[in-house]
Design a protein around this nucleic acid. Structure first.
Lengths: 199, 199
DNA sequence: GTCGTTCTGACAGTCACTCTCTCGAACGAA
DNA sequence: TTCGTTCGAGAGAGTGACTGTCAGAACGAC
């Protein structure tokens, strides 16, 4: 059912991303070419572009981008978007999101840290991450009109406030060293925004 | 005092920007090369890069980027940032911001419309605009800690909420055709955010 | 097995952007 | 005014991200 083709596509994407991360960590983002990444992953450069679009996409590729609107709607409570966001982050942070290697040293594996670090150290990647936040905002904006207390324009503003507020919290987390759980930073950082939806 | 050098630099930047806009409007952003812009403005391509850094910078170059922190501090009231923002937009929209051509047809001249249009029609320009908002947020964040009611992390979140909320309002304005004043869209769109600073 | 579709890799081309170097013109001081 | 100094402009070459197109191969359905 999974489709043999689709299955191989996923594993190919994973290995490309991993090889890319390896090279980036080793020599720096700017010093690695797409061609080298393709060679390391044993695919053609064309495939890298087909899968990720841009070089930055290798780091920013986001499962939320491909999530269906319906699934997104279940995640987000229009009455308490900040709480929903914290919950999503908390679930996302739970184990299993470190590839499926057993317990042990987690520093070099694939916590969020490894990818996200580049959001805040590599300007072009930061820009791409901002664009991803922007796309996310466009998707959740309609979901915020729920209560009927805000119109479409305000929903758009609040969606941007949420997604980029999240981004800001993520940066604080990064600046702190990226050790403590992200959810705490989101809870604390976005606390003032809760007043928007307070009764 | 103005420095003869600095003066010519400014006029050069103006003409480059105007020629670029002309070409973009005529043939589309993607179909114009830096080389053509440089030729039209009678400067070298090197100068275009020196002045604006990137092709998108031609449209996103922002006087707030170069504004001193002190001047920024005077514009922004930590107790009512939304009101301050509206006030800045209102002042920015007042006449005189249309170059120094006399009254008359304003459609083709240089209202905000002409540049801002590309923020929402050209993806790469949108991305650059988001980056500019991000830089602005980094600059105003420290100013929001005024009351002592928010810490640095929360100030960063709120700064992003403000700047990208503004961006969202701007997009609504654009989608509406860009005719009515922007300040109205900012006031209406950011209204829910006022609750954050409500006593 | 066979056909239509879809994905892949190869290739070439464009252009944004960087780096380096040289020259001339503006600046500050005598 | 004049003489160093400094700064910016232009020229040129190079890199690499990204875009198209195309032929061939693997896949899925029958």
């Amino acid at each position: 059912m999974a489709g043999l083709r689709e299955q191989w596509r996923r594993t190919a994407m994973r290995t490309i991303q991993e090889r890319a991360l390896d090279l980036f960590d080793e020599r720096g983002f700017g010093a690695v070419t797409i061609e080298e990444i393709a060679a390391a992953a044993e695919v053609s450069p064309s495939s890298v572009y087909r899968y990720f679009g841009t070089k930055e996409g290798l780091l920013v590729a986001d499962e939320f981008d491909t999530m269906s609107p319906a699934a997104l709607g279940e995640l987000l409570d229009p009455a308490d978007p900040v709480g929903s966001l914290v919950e999503v982050v908390r679930r996302y942070e739970a184990p299993q999101h470190g590839a499926d290697d057993g317990p042990g040293d987690r520093s070099g594996t694939d916590g969020p840290w490894r990818r996200v670090r580049y959001f805040f150290t590599e300007p072009s990647v930061r820009s791409a991450a901002l664009a991803a936040m922007d796309r996310a905002a466009a998707r959740i904006a309609p979901l915020l009109e729920g209560g009927g207390t805000v119109d479409a324009a305000q929903a758009r503003v609040l969606a941007h406030a949420l997604t980029f507020g999240y981004f800001a919290a993520l940066e604080t987390w990064h600046d702190d060293g990226g050790t403590r759980p992200i959810a705490g930073y989101v809870t604390a950082g976005l606390a003032p925004l809760r007043r928007v939806w307070a009764s």
